[in-house]
Amino acid sequence: MYTLQGVTKQYTRGKSTVHALAGVDLTIEDGGRLVIQGPTGGGKSTLLQMLGGLDRPTAGSVELDGVDLAKLSEAKLTKVRAENIGFVFQSFNLIPTLTAQENVETALVPLGVKTSERRRRAAEALDSVGLGERLAHLPSEMSGGQQQRVAIARALVKQPKVLLADEPTGNLDESMRDEIMEVLETLWKEHGLTFIMVTHDSAIARRAPRLATIRKGKVTITENAAA
């Protein structure tokens, strides 16, 4: 469970300071699903970075299951990321020189999983996103949708508590967008993990049961009982 209190994040570039997050209070239940939307530059990605332990807030606390990520040492924060957090990026972020299977394996490397088991689990994860036949393909040999599915397999292979996705369909055309959303929703249901996703897609936002809108660093929550 996430508990955010008074989270601010300022970026200083020379003399100008950008208040990317201006005091965010937020709770996200385990197994919950939160969709984040808002105008560009509103602070969506920044919030996701705080949740994923990729960066630290300027002030405030980001507690994951009672542990304040803002105060953890770098080593411990790295460990939290390795064990508990799965990331899916807008631009896939696959290692271009590694095959699909090897890309998925990179998520298991920091956990010290043995090579043979790593391979097996990576193959399984790729199978679960429908890419069982493409283990040896390089990212450049796959379509955008396929690449994003490899990235999803990489995020989920370690069975994290939390899946964070920053505009996972942003770089995809419409047909692939639905396909990816389907994969994500299925996996979320199967794994029972906390799923937080940033999206620009208002159709998706409308269907979301819980919607966070970020504008100028401020969050407003909309509960949608109908969804």
Binding site: A75, T78, R81, A82, S91, P96, T106, A107, P110, R154
Partner: peptide, 16 residues
């Protein structure tokens, strides 16, 4: 940058 950032985001230690 993004490649190595991604590995760090995945939990790779800086040393690795």
């Amino acid at each position: 940058v993004r490649e190595f950032g991604t590995l760090k985001a995945l939990g790779w230690k800086s040393g690795r």
